[in-house]
Design a protein around this nucleic acid. Sequence first.
DNA 1: CTCTAATACTTGAACTCTAAAACATCCACC
DNA 2: GGTGGATGTTTTAGAGTTCAAGTATTAGAG
Lengths: 175, 175
Amino acid sequence: MRETVDVMSNRPATDQPPARWLNEQEQATWRAFRHAMTLLEDHLDRQLQRDAGMPHLYYGLLVELSEAPRRRMRMTELARSAKITRSRLSHAIARLEKNGWVRREDCPSDKRGQLAVLTEEGYRMLSESAPGHVAAVRAAVFDLLTPEETRQFGEICGKLATALQPTGADLPWLR
Amino acid sequence: MRETVDVMSNRPATDQPPARWLNEQEQATWRAFRHAMTLLEDHLDRQLQRDAGMPHLYYGLLVELSEAPRRRMRMTELARSAKITRSRLSHAIARLEKNGWVRREDCPSDKRGQLAVLTEEGYRMLSESAPGHVAAVRAAVFDLLTPEETRQFGEICGKLATALQPTGADLPWLR
DNA sequence: CTCTAATACTTGAACTCTAAAACATCCACC
DNA sequence: GGTGGATGTTTTAGAGTTCAAGTATTAGAG
């Protein structure tokens, strides 16, 4: 990143191997990615907060549940597929439960387990807000990209996401 | 997005124009992007929290300041370049000030204005943590991409970021 | 020159997120 | 069939974020 090159132009000597800085192209890409990430997340959070009364993440959890068999999922599995920690999920589900969109059920096969279940009301809410959200995503992303760019973008993001999937040693979403 | 197609497979009739859903490719791309975004942000937040004692965003603010003339910037300009609201910036600078990495100064030309100034201590801190952070970014992103992919990725993210830049009517980061 | 609207920034309260610790249950092994 | 470690989930406390409202200063219209 450009920033760190500047920052480090007169860095103190260390016994570390010389760091490999980012080249111009990488700097520009990194900057663009961070900006896109910040702006998009902010934009969609605002859209959903306004139209559905919840942040982007929470909406994604309801969607995930809506696609699961019997519209229910074990907490840990839901956390894994949403790529978040179990703690974060606990808080989120607690809030969604207060809204009446999700309900918790004991897992029949494992007494430690909990199932998050999408309620009818939650399903209805999702049905009503989905078109608006898809439109927002389309307007902010896919209307701007050619099919080829969409493919490339997906491939690249897929690589990044896959590489960050913990391999068993370090399991962020299980913390 | 696949999710919403499922969700909406039996959606109630409305008088809205039929929504344009995402096709398979778009669904896959959107999912991959969201996952990459979540995992990366989480990963880097953790890396910086551990090695520099602050979240990713705060680190970015210090970097931005370090590159500015005289290592100082007006609050609004800093908010704009970091793509965040002024309120968020205010809180962030307050925290960084407590750490002694940033100091506020009155703007000489506009009595309403404040300058955020990177302190010597802040600069030193940045110098020490930059190599580790660059290494983390490289390992998580650029080591996985070919130069051509890096270029494509940057171009695509640039398009998304540019399109979300408010045009004057709606100015998120000025709220 | 003065009034009003716009701009610059901060604050407080409500909400969300993180990290660590707590609690309960399960499982494998003795 | 006990026991210790692993697993599943929640809780607590503290940090970060948002939104709306508040203060101060500038600028533009008359």
